[in-house]
Design a protein around this nucleic acid. Structure first.
Lengths: 227, 227
DNA sequence: GACAATGTACTAACTGGTTAGTTTAGTCAA
DNA sequence: TTGACTAAACTAACCAGTTAGTACATTGTC
């Protein structure tokens, strides 16, 4: 973890040629590894292949990440961190509830599409029954906040009389996730079976509208829908 | 020449002890292989391990299925076939549209839960970008009929004035699939992150009700919802 | 000099696939 | 009915390529 220990200075002063750069090395390895794991899975990814794409030797992978599973775990954490950091930038507090929920769903939809690598890592981790995610406190912490967003919007909506009471924010989040996750995760099989590319821009637009529609209709009071 | 071809049944007259049983062998191998691939993925599964669990030697896997990928493809086809055969038994033609759609969603929800192995195979195949599914005409054929069911129910509902017009049956099928698939496929990560087991019976019941609710609210005319 | 960072060259174990052979059971001529 | 013959079904042992992981040497920096 700590490539630079407390006593030492991160040697970034002198403009001299920097050949040794632990942080850069780690980042470079992790970046390549993330790509390879997302593409081929844990058992499918090859350490030699990862090393070859790196600017460093295989030895450095073991030096910094211990073993293959350690590298995978870091790649998994990395994927979650990147995505959740992106999500944290979404600001919907100022919007009225219906608009806020709309925005939230649209954002989730787009975001998942932009981060296919993340989706694939989550799929892979589920294939492994989540045993690596389980080892990471980091990931759990990152995610719990995701619920807060939707919970607050929903609470405001109930107060407003726009949303029906009695729904569970976690379940709402769950439904939104399901709708947005699936069309990235299952794009290949679905497209091939039904002969239309789910990922094509026009399809995406339709799908997004439907998804927003579905969530809003689910959360809204019946009276409000007629408006 | 060939007295008994692998796919055919040998003459079954004489009550003699049949030690050689090609069909049984194939079935035995395929059954074990399906389990192993669903559990560990294509690259994660081990031919030696599959063979060990079989009543036969490793050589027989190659004898009947050519290579690892051939075995995987057969396992994939097998998974789709089993599941679609189960679905075909669902009869909702006689029910009124709303009840029929309810039944269809409930069925899909339960069915996915009962066939986790199938869900995992689909996930794995998506990790592989569907390249194996692509090679199988069998699978495509099996699936297209799935649309017919929902298309007919929807059409009847529109006629009845219960469902709003303009929806695409494939998209409807898609939404239902998403909601029902996700809570099996992502059960591990979701449960671990949010600390509640999605697969627990009471959670399942709630989730199923919500899912049905969501689909019905999506398909129904606004006026109907108020009833 | 000390220690962190990195490369080279290696190995032990694994793993998909094959070779070379045996057993089973159906066929058919005599 | 028998025994030689054959194709199919099947096994044990092996092989060659791969792959995760290491020992050790070297270089850079404080």
């Amino acid at each position: 973890m700590a490539a630079v220990k407390p006593g030492q200075k991160p040697k970034k002063d002198r403009g001299a040629t920097r050949v040794q750069d632990p942080d850069g090395t780690r980042r470079n390895i992790l970046e390549i590894a993330s790509k390879e794991f997302a593409l081929n899975g844990l058992s499918g990814a090859r350490i030699d292949e990862i090393a070859a794409q790196t600017r460093f030797s295989k030895r450095m992978i073991y030096y910094y990440f211990g073993d293959k599973e350690g590298l995978y775990l870091h790649a998994l954490e990395n994927a979650y961190r990147q995505v959740r950091e992106g999500e944290a930038r979404l600001d919907i507090e100022g919007l009225p509830p219906v608009a806020a929920l709309t925005r939230l769903v649209e954002f989730t939809f787009d975001h998942h599409h932009l981060h296919e690598e993340f989706i694939r890592m989550v799929m892979i981790e589920n294939i492994h029954h989540g045993v690596y995610l389980e080892q990471s406190d980091v990931i759990r912490e990152l995610n719990v906040t995701a619920i807060d967003h939707i919970a607050r919007v929903y609470a405001r909506g109930v107060e407003d009389g726009k949303f029906r009471p009695g729904l569970d924010p976690v379940e709402l989040h769950w439904q939104v996730s399901a709708l947005c996750f699936f069309n990235v995760s299952n794009r290949a099989t679905f497209s091939k079976i039904f002969g239309r590319d789910i990922g094509a821009p026009d399809q995406l637009e339709r799908l997004k509208r439907n998804t927003v529609d579905m969530v809003l209709r689910f959360a809204s009071k019946a009276e409000v829908l007629g408006e």
